[in-house]
């Protein structure tokens, strides 16, 4: 097992390098001259030159690349062009809000998606299955900002059960949870739609395996067959999808934070867009990439725990 973990960790290094290279390409090479992007077409050559030297892009591209990768690997993500504060500090200040939201959404997604998926699989082609399939198709067609606005209209403006604005004081735990409900539902229900689909098909595949039929024939209670044997087998594809879904979750969390006016990474990134805070965008992208690499790693390791065949 230890060897497996080490191998996975080592394998993540080239991925991380590749990700950083891709970020570099997108941020430095795709737009041409970042200074002109920031200042606009009317900038004087002097102003552009000054900005270039401030951004550290007045040196050869290879030097820039090495500096960029070196800095990122040592945890230096640069500073905001606008506030001059380190990006890590800016992100750290709002990260708890985003972590709250994402974890709560995953909880909703799994808590709703897995049981509904199993339920649908057990009633294959019955009314419940058809309804679950249709609802999950609708759910995963919802752009998250649209479902957010609908929930907001219904539960905050019409019935006034939950607050309109999702910004909470971090130290006030009940308030923090209360204000989390609507955003977490917004983000979580779309995810639940995905998980329902995957759980359903994974359970159908798993329940048709021979050993499940054998267990049934041997008189193991059906409830136990489903929850212990069936679900254990179906857990691999579910974990894979949850892992893959994190990329979508991150994007959706940005939209959710905008709709509920919550502090978080999403608001930071939109703020950076509006202020043309180029270094901030670049740093945020690197941080997102680290996050994704870590999530992939965790998924892989979880896979190793769940599936004994993967260990070697």
């Amino acid at each position: 097992m230890m060897g497996f973990v080490i191998r996975r960790l080592l394998a993540a290094i080239p991925t991380l390098l590749a990700v950083l290279t891709l970020v570099f390409i997108i941020v430095r090479i795709v737009p041409g001259d970042p200074a002109m992007v920031i200042l606009g077409d009317q900038a004087t050559p002097e102003a552009a030159a000054a900005l270039r030297s401030r951004l550290g892009i007045d040196v050869p591209i290879w030097t820039q690349y090495l500096r960029f990768v070196g800095a990122a690997l040592t945890g230096d993500f640069g500073a905001s062009m606008v506030t001059s504060r380190p990006i890590l500090a800016e992100v750290g200040a709002v990260l708890p809000h985003t972590v709250d939201l994402t974890l709560a959404a995953m909880l909703v997604g799994v808590a709703v998606g897995v049981p509904v998926g199993i339920w649908a699989a057990l009633h294959r082609n019955g009314a419940i299955d058809v309804a679950a399939r249709l609802l999950s198709l609708i759910g995963l067609s919802f752009p998250v900002f649209v479902s957010g606005i609908f929930l907001l209209l219904a539960f905050a403006l019409h019935w006034r059960i939950f607050p309109v604005i999702g910004a909470a004081d971090l130290s006030d735990i009940p308030d923090r949870l209360y204000k989390l409900v609507l955003p977490a539902l917004t983000l979580g229900l779309v995810m639940a739609a995905y998980i329902t689909r995957v759980t359903r098909s994974a359970m159908l595949a798993s329940l048709s395996e021979d050993y499940i039929r054998t267990a049934r024939a041997k008189g193991v209670p059906w409830r136990r067959v489903v929850w212990v044997h069936g679900l254990r087998n179906a857990s691999l594809p579910i974990v894979t999808v949850v892992g893959l879904y994190v990329g979508i979750l991150i994007g959706n969390s940005v939209l959710t934070e905008i709709v509920f006016n919550r502090p978080g990474l999403g608001k930071v990134i939109v703020g950076a867009l509006n202020q043309r805070d180029y270094t901030m965008l670049q740093g945020l992208m690197v941080i997102y990439c680290f996050l994704i690499v870590v999530v992939n790693l965790v998924t892989d390791l979880l896979y190793g725990v769940l599936d004994p065949r993967v260990k070697t």
């Binding site: 997108i26 941020v27 940005v254 965008l281």
Partner: peptide, 20 residues
Amino acid sequence: DVLLSFPSLILGLIVVALLG
């Protein structure tokens, strides 16, 4: 795989922001 692991909305957002 690296491109696939990028959060697609963030990727789109930054590319549009940089290109206009």
